[in-house]
Computed example of a mutant assay.
Amino acid sequence: MQHSIERAHCLQAGRPQPTELIELDSTLRLHIATLRPRAVENIDRLGPGSIDWSREQWSLDLIDDVISQPPGDTTLSRITSIAMLARGCQWLLTHHGASRPRAQADTRPSPRGGRLPTKATR
C-alpha cells in the first residue's frame, strides 16, 4: 500500500502513461476498500457526537466523496484524483491500518447510573 501511495506522489514529476494512471487509480481504490471497514468499526466505537468521532468521521466522509467520483477524462484530472486517493489511503493506513490496534470503547460511570461510552483508546 505504501508503495502505491509513493507512486502517486511522484506522478506530477513525470509524464505518466494512461495505463499507469488507470492501474494506480484502481490499486488505490482497492486499498481504500480494504482499509475502510476497519476505520468504520473504529470510528463507531468512539461514540457518535464526540469531538474525536466528528474529526474521524469528517475525514472518512471526505474519502468517501473522493471514491464516489469517477476517474477524470484528462491526464491532469486523473493525476489530481490519484493524489486525493493517495491522501485518503495514507490517512486510513496511518490511523486505521493493520498495525494499529482496533479501538476499544472505554466506559465511565453515568450520573444516572449505568455506563456511558467515552473516547476509545488506541
Rank of each mutant, 00 (worst) to 15 (best):
L28D: 00
P111R: 15
I32G: 00
Q12W: 09
A98K: 11
R100Q: 14
S68H: 10
H3Q: 12
I43D: 08
A83S: 15
P16K: 08
P111S: 13
R55N: 15
L21T: 00
L35S: 07
Q17F: 11
P37K: 05
L21A: 02
H31L: 03
M84G: 02
S81W: 12
A103Y: 01
W53D: 01
T80A: 11
L76E: 15
L46W: 06
S26F: 04
S59M: 12
Q57S: 13
R115I: 01
A33N: 14
I5P: 00
Q57G: 00
I82W: 10
H31K: 06
S110R: 02
I22Q: 15
L92G: 01
R38A: 10
P117F: 04
R102I: 07
L35T: 05
G113S: 08
G47W: 05
R78W: 10
P18F: 10
E41F: 08
E20V: 01
D25A: 05
S77H: 12
I79D: 11
L46V: 04
R108N: 03
D106G: 00
L21E: 07
S4H: 10
A105I: 07
S54Q: 15
R7H: 10
R78H: 08
S68M: 12
L62D: 14
S26R: 14
R55G: 12
D73P: 07
S99W: 05
P71G: 09
L11Y: 00
S59G: 04
A83T: 15
R55S: 11
T75H: 13
T107R: 09
V40F: 09
Q69T: 13
S26Y: 07
E23S: 02
V66D: 08
H9Y: 11
S99G: 00
N42T: 01
A98S: 07
T74N: 10
R7T: 09
A86M: 02
L85G: 06
A13G: 09
G49R: 14
C89M: 03
A83C: 10
G97P: 04
G113H: 07
P18L: 04
R108Y: 09
L76C: 03
H9F: 05
H95S: 13
R112K: 06
L76T: 05
T121F: 04
I43S: 07
M84V: 01
P71H: 12
P48G: 06
Q90S: 06
A8H: 08
L85E: 11
K119D: 12
A120P: 00
G49N: 08
D106I: 11
C10K: 15
V66L: 07
V40N: 12
A83W: 02
L62N: 13
R15C: 04
W58N: 14
G47E: 09
D52E: 14
P117R: 14
C89Q: 07
G113M: 10
L35V: 03
L30N: 12
A98Q: 14
P70T: 11
D106F: 08
A13F: 01
P109S: 09
S59W: 07
L93H: 06
T19Q: 14
R55M: 14
H95R: 07
A39N: 03
L60N: 13
S110A: 06
L28E: 02
P101Q: 07
P48T: 10
A103P: 00
W53L: 04
D106L: 14
S81R: 15
D65C: 09
T74D: 13
A33I: 06
H96G: 04
R55T: 12
G114D: 05
D73F: 10
L24C: 05
G114A: 01
I51H: 12
P16E: 06
